[in-house]
Design a binder for these strands. Structure first.
Length: 202
DNA sequence: CTCTCGATGCACT
DNA sequence: GTGCATCGAGAGA
């Protein structure tokens, strides 16, 4: 686990970045303790052309980060209880981000269990709302530069190998339902319980 | 295992 | 006032 992923990593097509984030390490520092998880599931959200995206319309107080610099965190609050963590990623489009939906706990598992008030390892961060709770991420972490080595960033783990990727439609969206922009590590036990038809990429 | 449904609070229209 | 890029409990099989 060394340097954070560079800005240029995120300055590419949102879907490509989403797939490339699988297998990377989500790094979190809380007080003196560190939490590490391997990203196992993501979704790509584009800009105006993607009706399921928060950036489908003009910038607002909430979504403005998606229109800004790539490599910045976009954290929003939803369903009255949950936060979702994204990272801004795009090249041609004026807006875009990747939703980080699940991760495999690697380090700081006991603190994650405490944050989640749950014991089951497979249930600690296998969903976007669970992940932010396990990693203690809220609106205070909105707008953080994830390309800098701070309290929250993403890096390539020392033993990184490009994982086998499966895809499906995105979960919980009410429009653009047919876009196959959810990606997850094939056969991982650390992905959300979405019962959608999947397909392994060639 | 599967499915249904209520909780919850805020951004946006 | 409406609608969430969700979660977990409960019921049934």
């Amino acid at each position: 686990m060394l340097q954070p992923l560079a800005r240029s990593f995120y300055n590419r097509d949102t879907v490509s970045v989403a797939k490339d984030l699988l297998g990377r390490a989500l790094m979190r520092r809380i007080g003196g303790r560190s939490l590490v998880g391997i990203i196992t599931e993501v979704e790509a959200y584009k800009g105006a052309e993607d009706s399921a995206s928060h950036a489908h319309r003009a910038p607002t107080k909430r979504n403005k980060v998606m229109f800004g610099k790539v490599g910045i965190s976009y954290v929003y609050f939803t369903y009255g209880n949950h936060y979702c963590l994204n990272v801004v990623a795009k090249n041609d489009s004026p807006a875009g981000a990747v939703l980080i939906r699940a991760a495999e706990p690697i380090r700081g598992v006991s603190l994650m269990r405490k944050n989640r008030a749950r014991d089951n390892l497979y249930e600690l961060s296998n969903g976007p709302g669970k992940l932010t709770k396990a990693f203690r991420i809220s609106s205070e972490e909105n707008g953080i530069d994830l390309t800098r080595k701070g309290d929250l960033y993403i890096s390539t783990p020392t033993q990184f190998r490009r994982p086998q990727i499966s895809t499906s439609v995105r979960i919980g969206v009410s429009s653009a339902k047919n876009k196959p922009w959810r990606f997850f590590i094939s056969q991982s036990r650390f992905i959300s319980k979405a019962k959608r038809v999947e397909q392994t990429l060639p």
